[in-house]
């Protein structure tokens, strides 16, 4: 049983490490700020969950350690969308506009965010 738990938690740790690494590669491979935000989301959600669950299996069932890991888990999942949303809104207010793959099917960004910076108007990918 102990060996089984070890193997599962190791697999989770490795997979989580790979997810975090992929997210970090993503913020270099994606072309503009808004798409990079998606890559960062991978780390925030699945990467951290897998690593923290992997660690939970290694605690030896000590209650305080489990509670702390669960709190970190909950906290990351609750704050990361708030931070992403605040970041996206601030970027729109700052005049940044996402590069679009298919501008013809897209809707307009609401006007209340002000005028975009000149170089980021109508930027097709």
């Amino acid at each position: 049983m102990a060996i089984f738990l070890d193997v599962v938690s190791w697999a989770l740790l490795i997979l989580g490490g790979f997810m975090c690494f992929s997210g970090a590669v993503g913020i270099h491979r994606f072309p503009d700020f808004f798409s990079r935000m998606h890559a960062a989301g991978v780390t925030d959600t699945l990467g951290s969950s897998l690593i923290l669950i992997g660690l939970m299996l290694q605690t030896g069932w000590q209650a305080t350690v489990l509670v702390k890991l669960a709190l970190i888990f909950l906290f990351i999942l609750l704050t990361s969308p708030t931070a992403s949303h605040a970041l996206a809104k601030a970027a729109l207010h700052g005049g940044l506009r996402p590069k679009l793959g298919k501008p013809e099917v897209s809707d307009e960004i609401p006007e209340k965010f002000g005028k975009p910076r000149s170089e980021s108007v109508n930027n097709q990918l």
Binding site: F33, I51, I72
Partner: peptide, 23 residues
């Protein structure tokens, strides 16, 4: 290149630091 890219990267760095400290 933009300010917001930098903030995003710092946020990502912080999340990973949390995980790194735990590990």
């Amino acid at each position: 290149p933009t300010l917001y890219d930098r903030i995003l990267a710092v946020n990502l760095f912080g999340t990973k630091t949390v995980l790194f400290i735990a590990v």
